[in-house]
């Protein structure tokens, strides 16, 4: 999919995630989430306490999703990821205030909360512009595949400068994040990325090691 096709608005994503969550949340979790959404919608500060509680309130299992939420990528949603993103989509602010709030929630978040902030940028990216890029750079400095995978979503595809984006793709290869989760890979892959992948494959072969299947497939179509 192209970067254009990956675009989604706050309302669209909120609706899609809400629909996906409805059949899997039990009555207690559902009531809790509805209350939490209302609280965040009325007071952005409430998110600091509510986001960390999502896993234990709503569950953490895989979330079955339909076509639109996949956006050409694996159906990589869990219940807690989706519920946290829904809460973030309720934040009653935009522009600079939204950037500052997301920055705070990321900086003080555990790995799950950080991942949710990164994933919320799929929709909120349009409202913060490039101002959330430092969060992606932070995530891409870790070797935590949960964060690396979340940083190569649609926001990263649209906003990461070319050198950082290529490094991010290579980092996926090195940390074992499947390239199928890289949003807009075919759209954005350029000659320089192909050269980097080719060099990597050569290095592996010279060392008597296998070329990862993902890299071989990537190079096959170039």
């Amino acid at each position: 999919m192209t970067r254009e096709e990956l675009r989604v608005t706050r309302e669209e994503l909120r609706k899609e995630l809400t629909e996906a969550l409805a059949p899997v949340l039990d009555a207690e979790a559902s009531t809790w989430l509805a209350g939490a959404r209302e609280r965040v919608g009325g007071d952005a500060g409430a998110a600091a306490v509510l986001l960390p509680a999502v896993g234990r309130r709503c569950g953490r299992g895989p979330l079955p999703v339909r076509g639109t939420l996949r956006r050409g990528r694996p159906a990589s949603w869990t219940v807690d990821d989706a519920a946290r993103v829904v809460l973030l989509l309720e934040l009653p602010c935009t522009g600079e205030a939204l950037t500052a709030r997301l920055d705070d929630l990321y900086r003080h978040g555990d790995a799950h909360e950080r991942r949710a902030v990164l994933r919320s940028l799929d929709a909120l990216g349009a409202e913060v512009g490039g101002a959330a890029l430092p969060l992606l750079h932070d995530a891409l400095r870790t070797n935590d595949t949960r964060l690396v995978a979340a940083a190569v979503g649609p926001y990263g595809a649209a906003r990461l400068p070319a050198p950082a984006w290529r490094q991010a793709v290579l980092k996926c290869v090195f940390t074992g994040v499947p390239l199928s989760v890289v949003a807009g890979l075919d759209d954005r892959a350029d000659a320089e990325l192909t050269r980097m992948m080719t060099d990597y494959a050569r290095e592996r072969t010279a060392a008597g090691r296998d070329v990862p299947a993902d890299v071989a497939r990537f190079l096959e179509v170039r």
Partner: peptide, 14 residues
């Protein structure tokens, strides 16, 4: 093992 979905977010073996 690595399977579509959960594995990516919960971390995949290198």
């Amino acid at each position: 093992t690595l399977f579509e979905g959960n594995s990516v977010l919960r971390g995949t073996p290198a």
